[in-house]
Design a binder for these strands. Structure first.
Length: 615
DNA sequence: GAAGCCGTAC
């Protein structure tokens, strides 16, 4: 049964083509009887063969010789060949033909193929082999499930995952920690985190990998508080975290803006001799930057010996979001000097820095150089930055023209930015055009209507504002409620905008009322222009008074010692009025306040904001 | 054999 290697390597790479030819035969015989009449191979020859085959450079050559000379290949080497042919760019089909060449396939071979497909991101192929196993009476075993589940997770096919879970239970593999950990991971990635938790709870001998899979699941579903809870739970259970665990927990801290928690993790890494590898280091920089402590982020960056493009990117965007555009651009220059190759995300940070700083010319230059000098194709996010940069700076025509030149369809964010720019610069006509596009794409997003109402309110066109309100009622559109949180003594408190006094928080409302009086004497005037409804001034003022960020601020003033920076995280953008209010509070109450809103940071010190009122 | 990794425009 001679066969040329050439035809073997030219096997079809298309799945349907080769599956068509495939006959899978269950193997009851030993895997080593690959040939009908295997010639004897001495032990030394065998070991030589194995060694040679493990050297990828000689693989094709060896293979060719073996086939030409009709030398049988034992099971181990066959596996290696499959690994090799899959890993070396799309020889997957050849691997299968190879087994066909020898005429049979068994569960080990299937597992091997599934693993190779999974590792090379061909997840549907991986699932296909799994289903073929069943069809051909080859039973999956404990090595089949972890890998196929990984592919199922990547494909986000939860119903398939559930079916596989049933098989696992029926076959009695659920007590296998590898299998059940893979299930936890699969459910977590497929957004069925309660199932993940349930499987996790039933693992008898869970280990650090199982814990990490659970954390990954919570992070994936943006349940960041749960991640912190799980980390505490781990410590009570005596599980020893590893670097991957810390990365997961830091990610959660970064999203929550939970600085104290994050600091605690930083110390923990230090005290428990966990490595400050590039993943942990980058996650730390990101955490500090997202908690508004750029100096700490800088320190970590300087202490890191091994850096990569991610490390630079978190530093650059960290500077950008904290209003340190100059530092961001300097970091970018240093990055280039140190011969790191910037990628799309690097330029997102750079453009974002220009945008927050209003550096229009620089932004235009970077946008061009990204394309021309670095050969990177702008993605919709880059256009997003540019539209925002141009629009906010008043170049509405340029922004509109840029949208027209985009090679992709503008998304809601792009139109919302244009609308926002129209609101700032009072261009009702273009704003109406933008909102039309926006509502086609996002008819249910309350934020869009609010922007539109604000556009009209700026012009005192209360009839139009009323129309927008009616439209919202009629379409049953709800606004996302503003929600702010503040961390006091390691506990995160959340405040939602409301006009009635929450039981237990009476003093917060009382303090706010007092502050209002005090600040008015210091020159605070409620900015009612953005309270978009046609209501009496006093009423507008009242509705502004209980914005979530103000509630969080008053609570922070009550519950923390003087001198401590108040750190507030808000789900939406800070409103114009609160921005002014916070500036005066920082002066009158001599408190540094930092607010992380949906877009960026505002650091209020001594009556001024780091954004220099450009936001 | 399982997790595995850090960054992304309003």
């Amino acid at each position: 049964m001679k066969r040329s290697v050439k035809s073997f390597l030219q096997a079809p790479s298309n799945l349907s083509q080769w599956t068509h030819n495939l006959t899978i035969r269950p193997s009851s015989t030993s895997a080593l009887t690959l040939c009908e009449n295997p010639p004897q191979i001495t032990e030394s020859k065998h070991s030589h063969l194995t060694k040679s085959i493990s050297n990828h450079a000689h693989m094709s050559q060896m293979l060719s010789q073996m086939i030409m000379n009709n030398i049988p290949i034992d099971h181990l080497n066959l596996m290696k060949l499959i690994d090799f042919s899959v890993s070396s760019h799309g020889f997957a089909a050849s691997a299968l033909l190879f087994t066909q060449f020898y005429g049979f396939i068994d569960s080990d071979l299937c597992n091997s193929m599934i693993r190779c497909y999974t590792d090379s991101n061909k997840h549907s192929h991986s699932v296909f082999i799994y289903t073929q196993m069943w069809k051909n009476g080859i039973f999956p075993d404990s090595s089949t499930f972890p890998t196929v589940l990984k592919s199922v997770a990547q494909l986000c096919r939860q119903e398939l995952g559930k079916a596989i879970h049933c098989c696992i239970i029926q076959m009695g593999f659920e007590s296998n920690v590898y299998v059940s950990t893979a299930l936890v991971n699969m459910y977590g990635i497929c957004s069925s985190v309660s199932d993940a938790r349930q499987v996790f709870d039933e693992i008898p001998d869970r280990n650090i990998v199982s814990w990490n899979a659970l954390i990954t699941g919570y992070n994936h579903n943006r349940m960041f508080r749960k991640v912190i809870d799980v980390f505490r739970e781990m410590q009570i259970a005596g599980a020893k975290p590893v670097e991957v665990t810390m990365v997961g927990v830091l990610l959660a801290c970064a999203h929550l803006g939970a600085l104290n928690q994050g600091r605690w993790i930083d110390d923990y890494i230090d005290h428990n001799r966990l490595r400050l590898n590039v993943f942990v280091g980058t996650a730390l920089i990101d955490m500090y930057a997202k908690c508004g402590v750029v100096d700490e982020a800088e320190k970590i960056f300087k202490a890191m010996r091994v850096k990569n493009v991610y490390t630079w990117n978190v530093l650059i965007s960290g500077y950008a979001m904290n209003g340190r555009g100059e530092s961001a651009l300097q970091a970018f220059s240093r990055m280039i000097m140190e011969k790191f190759k910037p990628d799309e995300v690097t330029f997102l940070g750079v453009l974002c820095a220009c945008c927050h700083q209003g550096l229009v010319n620089e932004g235009r230059r970077y946008f061009t150089s990204m394309k021309e000098e670095f050969g990177l194709r702008p993605r919709i996010e880059h256009y997003g930055c540019m539209v925002d940069l141009l629009g906010r700076a008043g170049f509405l025509d340029d922004a509109q023209r840029l949208i027209q030149t985009m090679s992709m369809e503008p998304d809601p964010i792009i139109w919302r930015e244009l609308l926002g720019a129209c609101r700032i610069h009072g261009n009702i006509q273009l704003g109406e055009f933008a909102i039309k596009k926006l509502l086609e794409l996002e008819p249910k997003n309350g934020e869009n209507y609010v922007l539109l109402a604000n556009l009209y309110a700026r012009d005192q066109r209360w009839d139009k504002v009323g129309e927008v309100r009616e439209m919202m009622d009629c379409r049953r559109v709800r606004k996302v409620p503003g929600c702010s949180s503040i961390e006091i003594d390691n506990v995160v408190y959340e405040f939602v905008v409301s006009n009635y006094i929450k039981p237990g928080f009476e003093e917060v409302y009382k303090l706010l009322a007092d502050m209002n009086k005090k600040l008015k004497l210091a020159g605070y005037v409620a900015d009612t222009g953005m309270a978009s409804y046609d209501i009496e001034e006093e009423e507008k003022e009242h509705s502004l008074m209980y914005h979530s960020e103000k509630l969080a601020l008053a609570f922070g003033l009550l519950k923390s010692p003087s001198g401590l920076t108040l750190r507030i995280v808000k789900n939406l953008r800070i409103c114009q009025d609160c921005h002014g209010f916070f500036k005066i509070v920082s002066k009158v109450y001599r408190r540094d306040i930092s607010v992380r809103d949906r877009n960026r940071f505002h650091h209020f010190v001594g009556g001024a904001c780091s954004c220099k009122d450009y936001w």
